[in-house]
Design a protein around this nucleic acid. Structure first.
Lengths: 218, 218, 218, 218
DNA sequence: TATGAATGAGCCTTCATTCAT
DNA sequence: AATGAATGAAGGCTCATTCAT
């Protein structure tokens, strides 16, 4: 065959991503997935072995879809300044984890994995989260000025990434408290601006205060 | 009698809070709860009607326990300055949602509810989250200077609360990436400091930039 | 309650013995058992934990039923001669393992366990088969005369017990080759006679030949 | 071509014999067989129609293998005396049903069929067991002297064959009670000797007692 | 001739819930 | 107030078999 994966296998994968994202691993039944994918109940077992292995493949599949669409350098020209790179990082992060259907629920899946870790979390950390956080650290470091302690860089990176995660985790709350927010693309631009606004003021403030301390008599 | 709750009922409540926090609503079985509480399997349905109603009562119970121990003004003298009030807010938030057993898993329970909302989330929002967030907004507003738009205050409050939530959500990841972090009381003090450091620089920077724009010729 | 076991539990036990004997462990479904016992499908799990534990209890239950009805000394007066004791041993063995319904399929169950051993076989050997065989050895020994080597006693005991087992294992064949055989009580008496006839001639012959060898000049 | 069986078909047959012998008909899955034979999962149904027909062919195949290696006259010269013919019969029976791999589990397969008869048992009886038993009867008859009733001959033949079967059926028990027994070729010679010893004493004793009764005044 | 893909049936087990006491 | 017994529903998984190629 030309296509390396069966059509059935692909249909299961797409359906499973949506259902797992919507209901979580435990509450998702194989029957739900097969019903949505319009395939036989035993197909999951045939193609993936069992529910858990299907879940792991779904995580990888959704991640690759989301990252292919929105890499951390999304919309960024080569040789961009650190501030622009931070902007692109935040924006692509939000887009990647938004509930756009074509992300296959990637954001929600990871979020669920954080709250109810399975063995798949180690996989996500080792092959994704660690790298992603490292990229952020490399972006933040030059923004803090020269010779800044690594621990401070890490703390600032955490403060920034936490603001991005907030719009992932608090989506249900915001949807209830402010239903007019839709988290569509315009909202993402606005939220990116707010996070940038707050964070750049913080980083600049920190950078300046360290300069003053460094050269107090200047 | 004043204490309308029997001992059995109380034992179920305490056991259920821990088990629900550890395994989540769906993965928790009534057998687990009754086993831990050393009561009969039918006791849950007798005292609480069904699993869902027990869960709602558990949320309320855990919240009241955590809030009683760590109110938002925890360790704060009357008439404190805004910056001190922000410090107390952040610190009490972290302590309240830490995994100290006496919090009965309150932080984890809320976090799970965010990821897998049930009808109980509305209850939590209306009777808790909204108030808590309002308190933060009232603390942040004066820190941003006079006549600042409410939308900006809200955005800053979100940026601050998101940093507090981060240490709740990313606990499993941090536990894997940096196992030396224990989230005990010393860690809370340190984290509070980091969040304050980043946020005060941001708030001060924003405040200053607005002053300059307001009175450019001064 | 007065009766120590529930009625449901007892009904399951009796039904399971029959069905396990008829179809074997693997081919027996819990549905068959519950259907026959007229109880809910989950009752097996409630009362016995799982299929395997039920099976072990069935083995013990059927054995105690069969042994209570036909102990190795069945129909034997105290101080009987060795030949009479052998007769009683063989007869009670055949009766115990016959397909009389009140034996709850004990013979068939053990036979199946021999062919398809599970962990339950160790239990049967340690608590039953070993003792039973030891009793036979103690009966055979005096029949072989004085100072006979133990290995010879064991070999003769095996030859005798094998004839008893034959009517257990070859029942399906005999039923097909000689359908007039019913293995009812009269048949058991006749078969006992045949086994005794063959075996006593063998034992007597062995005993005599050893006497001649011992005292060749006598 | 002369060899109408393909290589795949042959591989399945050999693998199936071993697996059926080891696990029994019900517990054997087609996956096990195809896995062992290194053929596609659908090959069984393609070559044999279904599991049951494969099983029947396996029985026939294993029997022909075992009988070709160890015919009832194995190691016997023409015109041998009845006692020698009995010795050869017993010895070849034990060898044929031993667990030597080249017997393809024939003994175990027949034993399982006795315990869990399928329609294949009729086939085995009509085409094998009946003939085999008739041969034994013809050997035993002259050993009992002249003009002996046929029913007595049959009973003695049953007593002898039962001793041979014993070492087939009680293998799991013996393996647990006396693990040093390996049922290799030396063991077969020894066991043959024991069965002969016991049985010849019996047959001789019966024969003599009948002579005495026949000619009491001699 | 041979196979990868797919399927429908069924099994063991678990669970929340209810009932009779 | 509390409990042991019982139940109906459903879930994950396995299996023999079939189909299209």
């Amino acid at each position: 065959m030309e296509n390396e994966t069966t059509e059935t296998r692909g249909r299961i994968l797409e359906a499973a991503a949506v259902v797992f994202a919507e209901h979580g691993y435990a509450a998702t039944t194989i029957r739900m997935i097969c019903g949505r994918a319009q395939v036989n109940l035993a197909a999951v077992n045939y193609h993936f072995g069992n529910k858990e292995r299907l879940y792991r493949e779904v995580l990888l599949y959704a991640r690759s879809c989301a990252y292919d669409r929105y890499p951390p350098t999304y919309g960024l020209a080569d040789g961009a300044a650190p501030e622009q790179r931070l902007h692109a990082f935040i924006r692509s992060f939000l887009l990647r984890t938004s509930c756009d259907e074509r992300n296959l629920g990637f954001g929600t899946l990871v979020m669920r994995e954080l709250v109810e870790p399975t063995t798949a979390l180690d996989m996500l950390i080792d092959e994704g989260i660690r790298i992603m956080f490292g990229q952020l650290v490399d972006i933040v470091r030059p923004l803090l000025g020269e010779q800044v302690e690594e621990e401070l860089v890490l703390a600032c990176a955490r403060s920034i990434i936490s603001q991005c995660l907030f719009y992932l985790f608090s989506r249900p709350v915001i949807r209830r408290m402010a239903p007019e927010q839709k988290f569509n693309h315009e909202d993402v631009e606005m939220i990116t601006g707010q996070i940038m606004f707050f964070s750049m003021h913080a980083l600049n403030g920190i950078s300046e205060s360290r300069c003053r301390r460094e050269r107090p008599h200047a």
